[in-house]
Design a protein around this nucleic acid. Structure first.
Lengths: 327, 327
DNA sequence: CTGAAAGCGCTAACAT
DNA sequence: ATGTTAGCGCTTTCAG
């Protein structure tokens, strides 16, 4: 395609090895020769073929990333942070989407490995032992997004259970005695999906048990309608803890439309701190899951593993309660 | 690293050429030999080295993508659509972020070209003739995001000017005689950035001139404060056309907080149709710029160019006014 | 139908 | 300080 080391060698009247030496500053080379070579390389617009280099070095300087999709801000923010970290280290990102399909996911892994990526960062479509095994048998290291201390694989994420418990306690301390957990439809019912939401649900259940509160879960497609129905029936002032800012905002809108006012009639709290411009009167209370830091740290971990370091097996990123004005 | 065609050749007792033939079904090969080779390949878990293949074929099956960042839903949605289209065609995406820095952008282009991407999709940090020339001189085809009919390069996008005029007319027809255009701070003041916003501004100016309305632009950092100030002074019922849903939602929140009610006291319209869960009482009126279609079509165009087709020089994607309830 | 040989562009070990 | 050689894993003539 372009000009190669072979061309340069011919033009400069030296061997290709000398060209390499000039270009890399490795080995010993006469300053003038080097100078001359670099100048002609510049003049001819020489650009190294990184594919060829990868082939011989056995290192592609690219990382494969697999997430469900980029519609959700969650992953795009994470990848944004990851990319910055990686480009600093001269790595390129191959981003692919499994769309919650395990077969697609496996195919993507094969393709990426075929492209000789140096490592993989995955937010998996499912979470079973067999998959960790599969990942561990790959010829490249991989990091999984999401805190999963029992998994036989390197993971990075916040402790969703603990974070949800903190959120419940936070709401409780604000005087709410009726705390309802709102989980949106989880795509598949096989409990393999949305690990995060399941962990949050578990955290909620534990927390209300500890506080000896009534356990109340609103779940599924019609969650907005169900919330309104609940409000109509109850005589209390409940708080809705929603497993995601997006759902909290939808719920907030629905409640306001039905004439209920936040704090006076209900409390509401989100999760994820998506920092969605919330064209509302109040700032949403939520849990910041530090998604950008997760991205950075996942990148960092993977780089370490590529370098051959042992690495932390399960990196727990701290979360943070954002007080807001809705609870 | 893994098992290679060389290994397979040795095990099967044939030459590497025969292995290739079996694997690709090209050339003539005895059915039983093929069968046998495929079986052992399967058994040994053979995975082709796509880098080596790329090197010899001169085709990497990856596309380089350069956008400002992924914080903005705009680009993540676009890339989401692009990725799907590309993966269908067996292409991988190398996504990189220039962060509005022209030097980084050039570096990224060099890196991607060095990795022998088969094509480039760019939402550039700047828009000048020199850059189109630079792109055209690259050894790979490229597609630019954004409608730019005068550029010497293939572009894909909506006609921002026309769309903004439509929006102004839409607002006017709804009875508003005072239409204020709200542009947020454009990162750099050198008019190179945010081509889209500049085009929209131009469209707005043309439209109000045609309608013989007063031209009023609210611009810069303190736009929220300026909007409120404007409301306090005016005796009319103005409409705010915001160059972006995100800003519209912020503005909406600020106006509501100051006690103004949409439709009764003001109208407001966005741009981009980010479909942000809008925890508000009304559905935001906006312009749908079909960002996903832009992503798909950019991918489609590039694929065509890689195949050697001539391609449309400037592909205009239709926009659509979303009526909403705020104007 | 199959094998031998050359080469993609680069790097690295070993001479000179 | 420089050149020679071999090889990364694959494909593609060209013979046999």
């Amino acid at each position: 395609m372009g000009v190669t080391t072979k061309d340069l060698a011919k033009i400069c009247g030296v061997s290709r090895a000398t060209i390499t030496r000039a270009l890399h500053g490795t080995g010993s080379i006469k300053p003038e020769t080097k100078q001359m070579i670099l100048e002609t390389a510049e003049k001819m617009g020489y650009q190294p073929d990184l594919l060829a280099r990868s082939l011989v070095k056995g290192v592609s300087m690219t990382i494969g990333v697999i997430v469900v999709d980029l519609k959700n801000q969650y992953f795009s923010k994470m990848i944004n942070a990851m990319e910055k970290k990686m480009i600093e280290n001269k790595y390129l990102l191959n981003i692919t989407l499994h769309e919650n399909d395990h077969e697609i996911e496996k195919m993507l892994i094969r393709t990426l490995v075929g492209h000789r990526v140096d490592g993989l960062i995955i937010s998996p479509s499912g979470y079973d032992q067999a998959f960790w095994k599969y990942l561990n048998e790959l010829p490249v290291p991989s990091v999984v997004i999401g805190h999963k201390p029992e998994a036989e694989i390197t993971t990075v994420g916040i402790d969703e259970k603990k974070a949800t418990r903190s959120a419940v306690n936070f709401i409780y301390e604000r005087g709410y005695k009726h705390i309802v957990f709102v989980v949106p439809p989880l795509k598949r019912a096989d409990s393999k999906d949305n690990m995060g939401h399941h962990q949050r649900l578990e955290g909620y259940c534990n927390a209300v048990k500890e506080l000896q509160l009534e356990q109340r879960i609103i779940y599924g497609e019609q969650y907005l309608e169900k919330i309104i129905q609940y409000m109509k029936k109850t005589k209390e002032r409940p708080a809705f803890l929603c497993s995601g800012d997006v759902f909290a905002i939808e719920a907030y809108g629905a409640l306001r439309k039905s004439g209920y006012l936040e704090k006076r009639d209900f409390g509401i709290m989100g999760f994820d701190h998506m920092d969605i411009p919330f064209g509302a009167l109040s700032k949403l209370s939520t849990v910041d899951n530090h998604i950008e830091e997760i991205g950075e740290q996942a990148a960092e971990q993977l780089l370490g593993m590529i370098r051959g370091e042992r690495g932390v097996r399960h990196l727990e990123i701290p979360y943070k309660i954002i007080e807001g004005e809705t609870v």
